[in-house]
Design a binder for these strands. Sequence first.
DNA 1: AATTCGTGGAG
DNA 2: TCTCCAAGAAT
Length: 282
Amino acid sequence: MLVIAWFDAHRRDLPWRAPDVTPWGVLVSECMLQQTQVDRVVPRWQAWMHEWPTPAALAQAPVADVLRAWQGLGYPRRALRLHATACALVDTWGGQVPESEPDLRALPGVGSYTAAAVSAFAFGRPAVVLDTNIRRVLARAWTGVAGPKAHQTRDELQLAAGLIDEHTGAAWSAAVMELGAVVCTARSPHCDQCPLAHRCAWLAAGRPDNGPVRRAQARFAGSDRQARGALLRAVSAAEGARAPELARAWADAEQRERALAGLLADGLVVRTPAGYALPAQH
DNA sequence: AATTCGTGGAG
DNA sequence: TCTCCAAGAAT
């Protein structure tokens, strides 16, 4: 197939693609890559795998250490869930990563995409992988629209399933995902370098701006998300953080209280006699 | 089903 | 500067 040949020639040398990487390594990479760019993940994945090379190793680590190792990647609840997944793997899977999508899907922080990705990329199964890159390539080359809809559709899943079936499963998914990531990009796609250019419906139509209108992302500056991040860093830096440290981290009192309540509810921060702290155990 | 959840790079 | 968007998941 065209895209697989293209992939063989152009694939990036990402560390989790090395031949000796374990299914656990693949799972860790997929969790880190949820809404976080590849370039930011690479060094963190390497450090993480050095520190916790197996599910058993991560399961034994204090949650506070896990959260600190995650700092900077964003969405720290993912770190909590990855730790919980490590515990589940030890408790019910003998410290191994299961191969089937339903079994993977039952793990904390593993949704439909991650389950399919691990099943395909760690075990070579022909799972139907649908991430933002593959969805964009399908939308353009096959459907002739500039971009995918906000949410997955049945048609999309069926289209991908048919293509997976007709090609060599995991390799096809890896190739199309890579194509979407480096050639068929959201912003300014490099159609001159695309192996599908000669048969791309969107390119043939003159690259029309006919994609679905997407709702604008809420601004980050001054958001609750930013407040949570600032507070979590403050708690992480000063075990036993009290009011002054928190106020220094985020000035607006009302928003600070709301964000702190959220962090406590999520289990990212706990109350201790010494003040607020990262959780020791989960 | 629509919201919420971090952070940073690129245009 | 500001906007977009990034290998999504949970609720």
